[in-house]
Design a binder for these strands. Sequence first.
DNA 1: CACCAGGCAAGTA
DNA 2: TACTTGCATGGT
Length: 213
Amino acid sequence: MNKKLLSIYNRLYKRFGPQGWWPADSAFEVAIGAILTQNTSWKNVERAICNLKKNRLLTFEKMYRVNRGDLAHLIRPAGYFNIKAKRIKNFLSFLKCSYNGSLKKMSSGDPAYLRQELLSVNGIGPETADSILLYALRKPVFVVDAYTKRIFSRHKLAKEDVDYHELQSLFMMHLPPDEQLFNEYHALLVKLAKDYCRKSKKECLRCPIHEKD
DNA sequence: CACCAGGCAAGTA
DNA sequence: TACTTGCATGGT
């Protein structure tokens, strides 16, 4: 499995090259984006982030001050704007209480402990927590998402109804705990899914996973 | 028109 | 525990 996972990674990297994740100007922007992208296309998230930038709200202090209603209005293009505004506020309250609003302070903590903390915030589940840990805090934590599940179940590398942590440990048990590797691997799986493994698209022509090294 | 997108929590039985 | 439903915009 160790070899297989690395082999898949090498094929994806060879085909698609570095993906440059996470596209953002700061760790704070990554964390907010992680909440905004819950079950939402990245294109819509970009519109919401653009609105936040235009209003100079993409810093902890500014966003901590703004009303939840005003925040909801600005992130409207990302969908679920009321509940996401609440979730962002929950995250900011946690960050204020535990780390005085500083992701930099937070980043010195132990990944397993930080994960527990993030999961205790209402609105932050496994994928959002792991996205923040990997892409904002640079911790070697593998991010699983709907794409990862779809690709691995369609290729019979995992069962159809595989559990989040089951699939996550598959990666983390068989790969070195390399933050850069996890970063690129997850990004490449998203790229693969978008190009070759859409939900409604059953075929998988020219899919790099099937190719030789 | 239906279906999907870088999920999560709350309600029901 | 195991389903089901609400949340909502914008693209195909």
